[in-house]
């Protein structure tokens, strides 16, 4: 018989997987399937029309673009923060470490209001930027700022444990073999951390795609310019067009699923290769 799983002496595979699947179906899969059925009410043509109007396409561009750039910045800065927090000792380190989780705990609406307060032309940061002619609040840049804020913890918290696990012995070995510090970085540290960086980047990207609460306060929400996809879903709902809202939501959902799937496959692949080394 074709084996769906590798044999193991450990018990409990059936019940645990069964419960996990049951719970997953109840909370996530069945409700999400409902979304598909709702958007199917439109028929294929109606579905395509609903998700391909110029306005929807413009907001897809903005949402994916801003989320990508936010995740990209976070991939680097998040790596830097994780490195500094795990490798160096400096005053205030623990406080900074704790603050990384702030975007999780702060309701997204509060984050949005706080960021708008800061970056508005009369805010602490906005008034300084205003003098040099940079506008952040109520522009696409505002969307980006909000997304950087909410997605930062994902990168830091993904890279941190890997860095903690990275034995200093490897770097010592590299150094004792005559490698300069930059060579150790390039050939030893970065390759080990790359999978975690990519995972962190993707989680941040995925999270940023769906963000609503913090963005609407700082975005300006102008059609074709600073209108994000979740807002369009909201607009469809306001018109009592549930199927149209579900259609846009379905596209977002598929995009996230494919993105996350690629990452997870990639990660298992690198993990296996890593294990085989």
């Amino acid at each position: 018989m074709f084996a769906l799983r590798r044999p193991s002496v450990l018990p409990g595979f059936g019940p645990t997987l069964g419960f996990a699947l049951f719970y997953l179906s109840l909370i996530v899969l069945i409700p999400l399937a409902g979304l598909f059925f709702k958007s199917a009410e439109l028929g294929w043509e109606g579905f395509v029309r609903a998700v391909s109007t110029p306005r929807v396409l413009a907001s897809f561009r903005l949402t994916f673009g801003a989320a990508f750039l936010a995740a990209l910045l976070n991939a680097f800065v998040g790596f830097l923060v994780a490195w500094v927090l795990t490798r160096y000792r400096f005053p205030g380190r623990r406080v900074i470490d704790g603050l990384v989780d702030l975007p999780f705990a702060l309701p997204t609406a509060v984050a949005g209001i706080a960021l708008a307060t800061l970056y508005a032309p009369n805010g602490w940061i906005g008034s300084i930027l205003d003098k040099v002619g940079i506008k952040v609040a109520y522009t696409p840049a505002g969307v980006w700022v909000a997304l950087v804020f909410i997605s930062l913890p994902f990168v830091v918290r993904t890279i941190q444990p890997v860095l903690q696990d990275l034995e200093p012995e490897i770097e010592e070995a590299s150094a004792s073999l005559g490698a300069r510090r930059w060579q150790t970085w390039l050939y030893v540290i970065i390759p080990v951390l790359l999978p975690a960086m990519i995972t962190g980047f993707s989680l941040a990207f995925a999270r940023a795609l769906g963000e609503y609460g913090s963005v609407i306060f700082i975005a300006g929400n102008l059609p074709f310019r600073s209108e994000i996809v979740p807002l369009l879903i909201f607009v469809q709902l306001e018109q009592y067009n549930y199927a149209g809202a579900a259609a846009i939501a379905t596209v977002m959902l598929m995009a996230s699923f494919i993105l996350l799937l690629i990452i997870n496959v990639l990660q298992r692949w690198t993990a296996r290769r890593h294990g085989a080394d």
Binding site: L32, G213, I233, A249
Partner: peptide
């Protein structure tokens, strides 16, 4: 695993 991750990226409105 991907299905478990999915709620991360689903917009709260959805």
């Amino acid at each position: 695993i991907t299905l478990i991750d999915l709620p991360f990226s689903v917009s709260p409105v959805i």
